[in-house]
Design a binder for these strands. Structure first.
Lengths: 196, 196
DNA sequence: TGAGTTTGTTACCGATCGGTCACATCGATG
DNA sequence: CATCGATGTGACCGATCGGTAACAAACTCA
């Protein structure tokens, strides 16, 4: 009977690969990508560097995989939104604002994809396509939602909301939780009203 | 006659300390803080590591000094704004938007202070007070400008404009120049109108 | 000119980084 | 039981990092 996996942090019931990705996501978010060593990731995943490199050819590859995993979770949110208010796009838009405001309160680190783009300045880093695809996807979905909600300028409204949430999340990092990010929800409501 | 400083990159007419700070600003902006080594900074400043460490006790100290220098330049912008339209706060606010939009077009890297806050996750890093002071100062000045321009809710408008510019600059990094950042100026005008 | 300060040069330190090696161990499946 | 693929272990590599020691050269200013 395997007693060594009784109550360890990462729950050794999953396979190493999944544990590595989830540990990488957490450490990248908390400490940044460059500041997180592969050794620390392996250790947090309750495995070792060799196993990490058997699954991922390089740290950059693991970075990409982590960002893809996070992207996938965002897709889940949109699916849940559609399921919660199948025929009320207005409510979906309100819920989007509410969810983003909650996220702002509970996650002090901002958007992992955005942070990765800020931190990884090499223009040919393999993470960039992942980031750009994610941002384009979020934009496309939000434009669709704004259109469904009956906005008179869905693209502009979606971009305004995007700028507000991106600004709020990053401003929370630089100006603190009492800074301009507190105006996020009110700003969204004003934007939605002005482009109804 | 000192012929060796004919046309070298950094213009060796200034003192090493100033050259080091300006080289550090440039390299931090282009490659990020953690990705920039002190050796590279010294070389770009046309000097050496030893001289760098005679002026700055550590890399972190140099980071702080660089961020302070950049903060000072922002103060110059506000002074120039006041000087250009001494008795027309409306025009000053319009000019603020215009200047920020220009900045968005010409500087692909976003705000150095914001980027530093995103990259430096250690909560006790000496750069944080510098960043927070800068952000608080910008906010205070913008609230004042919005109030002078006659907004009915100057704090809210200032925060909205802050979220829009922070979002636009960071979104330019992650979603590219064709992304939501293109809506920045229109979003600002809409915000200003809705809180006139 | 001379003294004192500021720079330049070079080599070096310990630590850490991403990444690889050979080899032992485990777990499932036949 | 035997086999084989997946995993664990620990040592190791070259490169780079932030930071320092020691000494030579240059500049400043009386």
């Amino acid at each position: 009977m395997p007693e060594e996996l009784a109550g360890n942090e990462k729950g050794a019931k999953t396979r190493p690969r999944e544990r590595i990705v989830s540990a990488a996501c957490a450490l990248f978010r908390e400490n940044g990508i460059r500041a997180t060593g592969v050794e620390a990731i392996a250790e947090a995943a309750d495995t070792n560097k060799m196993t990490l490199y058997r699954h991922f050819g390089s740290k950059d590859e693991l970075v990409c995989e982590s960002l893809k995993t996070i992207s996938a979770k965002a897709a889940d949110f949109w699916a849940g939104l559609e399921r919660a208010f199948p025929d009320d796009p207005q409510a979906r838009l309100d819920r989007w604002v509410e969810h983003r405001a909650d996220q702002l309160d509970h996650d002090p680190c901002g958007c992992d994809l955005t942070n990765a783009a800020v931190e990884l300045k090499e223009p040919d880093h393999p993470a960039y396509p992942v980031i750009e695809r994610y941002k384009a996807d979020q934009r496309r979905r939000l434009v669709g939602l704004c259109a469904d909600a009956g906005s008179r300028e869905p693209e502009l409204l979606a971009d305004m909301l995007t700028l507000l949430i991106e600004g709020a999340r990053v401003s929370r990092c630089s100006a603190g939780p009492q800074g301009p990010s507190r105006a996020f929800a009110r700003a969204c409501r004003a934007a939605i009203l002005s482009l109804r």
